[in-house]
Design a protein around this nucleic acid. Structure first.
Lengths: 348, 348
DNA sequence: ATGAAAGCGCTAACAG
DNA sequence: CTGTTAGCGCTTTCAT
């Protein structure tokens, strides 16, 4: 139709541009990649040819020669957890701003899922991978990655790789100190498979540290999963309820994360435990929902955007070679957001 | 180290396998791709060579010759909306089960974002794209996709492409009928930029239809965005409050989706409007949160997993050529979940 | 049933 | 400053 268009309706290649501009493929390549050392008017001619042909470099060919894509693998624990959803969103944004795309993998707190996802990412030759969560042994991950791909851990710490996280330990300490200041003496830490184990350990350690200093008893993590709508067993419920009743009942809980805290509030509501009168609850993350008047959750805030931004910047630095050497660990300071889910324990 | 390993620490290619097995590249290729017509023991020899070398086909090379990846592009409105998070998660699962990966793009209800994301996906040569949301003109999308990539709309209908959705119109009708049955006479429909416009129009139409039949007044969509924590303007709040006070106040609202409904509950709480006594609220989606005792939102349920599963199956059908011909539209039936956010209007 | 050979579109030495 | 050339690893006719 348009004058000059060839009859073959194929997408133009670098070769067509070269022909049209009367130069060689290399020159076109140099122009396209913006490499220096191309005479100004050669460059202009090539650019015109590109325009008129509507040429677009073939990403797949480029990836093939580089043996690398511009995709970032992102592993999240579970998108239903607003923490991961929020982080995933921001990671995608920052990646896109740097002309990278995000390949999202949901690992559901399952080590085998995680491993198979990592294998898929490696097979796709992703440029780097960001772990927002990981369940399983680190040697498995390392084996699967085989040192081929830069890795970043975001929101948890891992020695052998770059990481950015909030000081989980310190965050838990803020929370526990707050509860002690309110007058609580029997405080539990709740763990969940929806929190990355490394982060969970650090939070539990913070919990222990402050209680220990105050001469109060610290228990082991209490593993509790919110009963799913279908699979709720009366037995589990009764057992948990026992923890909050009787002479030695726990008066406050630091939850693994906000998601669990919200589930615990739900549990309390269902059983007539008043929050905060009968039970004070502290979350971790400060997801958007925590601020709702109906939940009003006291929680430890994580700086989402900073985590995401640094995570992306760091992997890209590794990918592009601007960051070299030993693993870098950045730690951000958490802060406590006090709302209505905590109060002094009711006098007995 | 291992006997037989060459000194060069390079990853083995199809050529190395061929050499080791004493056959040609083509034969290896035939074995790898499982194509018929390879003598049983040739096949065995090749497989042994593959094993011993630890050969893995190079995905990038394959993608290069096919000029296509096994990536599914997934466009979501906003991962902070639990509806999209849930859908994205399930789409990723189903895709992975079919050996596809998911490239997630967050378009934030913005047409330009959407367009640039689509361009990136096309540039990546994704095998197909699933729209969980789209904002912008469909001619823009079509131009960007250029007929190159199979497209699927999930949770909304679009004539020119395959689609799977809940009957939005019918869903809204269920909700409005429920409100009328409760005795409500002045009911609003709230729209939001967090709901895909096509779906929003259909829901509004359902709202109008039922009210019309009942001889009641239907208004235009009321556009309302939840005030973000920082940018809340007193002016907007006052204006909205006016809608719910006075002689002709609205006693019930059908919200664009659960996210908005939750925000509206929050608004009500902040201003001392009791839900459901002063204001009945119905959502749409039935996200997990809607079931929390503290929210207990009456809402229209969407069958998440069925939507996701059909969406993936359909694009894959197009990609692999098992589905041909005109656009296919499937429509699922919504159902109403009645909880505590709706009740008869208070007598005045 | 197997092999030879021609690309796929681009990059990156290396020459000129 | 520009062109020549040799791949990258795999698929796919087309012979044999």
């Amino acid at each position: 139709m348009t004058p000059g268009s060839t009859t073959k309706r194929k997408v133009p290649t670098i070769f067509d541009v070269a022909e049209q501009a009367g130069v060689s493929k290399s020159t076109v390549s140099n122009v396209v990649r913006g490499s220096a050392g191309v005479a100004v008017d050669t460059r202009r001619r090539v650019q015109q040819a590109i325009e008129s042909l509507g040429y677009r470099p073939n990403t797949l060919a480029r990836q093939f020669v580089h043996q690398r894509t511009t995709i970032l693998g992102v592993l999240v624990g579970d998108l239903n957890n607003p923490f991961y959803a929020e982080m995933a969103k921001r990671v995608e944004q920052h990646a896109f701003a740097h002309h990278y795309t995000a390949m999202l993998c949901n690992i559901e707190g399952d080590a085998d899922f995680a491993l198979s996802r990592i294998e898929a990412l490696v097979e796709q030759h992703v440029a780097g991978v960001i772990f927002l969560a990981y369940f399983g042994s680190s040697s498995d991950i390392q084996a699967a990655l085989d040192g081929k791909v830069p890795v970043m851990f975001a929101s948890m710490r891992e020695k052998w790789s770059d990481s950015i996280s909030v000081a989980d330990n310190a965050g838990a300490q803020l929370a526990i100190q707050h509860l002690i200041d309110l007058g609580h003496r029997r405080i539990s830490y709740f763990a969940s498979r929806h929190l990355e184990p490394r982060a969970s350990r650090a939070r539990h350690a913070g919990y222990q540290a402050v209680l220990g200093e105050a001469g109060l008893a610290a228990g082991p993590p209490v593993y509790w999963e919110a009963p799913s709508e279908r699979g709720r067993t009366a037995q589990d419920e009764v057992e948990l309820l026992r923890l909050f009743t009787g002479r030695h009942r726990q008066t406050a809980v630091l939850c693994a994360n906000d998601l669990q805290a919200i589930d615990l509030i739900e549990f309390a509501d269902r059983h007539g435990l008043r929050v905060p009168e009968d039970l004070s609850i502290v979350g971790f993350d400060d997801v958007h929902l925590a601020g709702l008047a109906r939940l009003s959750l006291t929680t430890v805030r994580q700086p989402f955007d900073e985590l995401a931004q640094i995570a992306v910047a760091t992997v890209l630095g590794r990918i592009e070679g601007s960051i070299l050497g030993r693993p870098r660990h950045r730690v951000l300071e958490p802060s406590l957001v006090v709302r209505q889910s905590t109060a002094p324990p009711a006098v007995r």
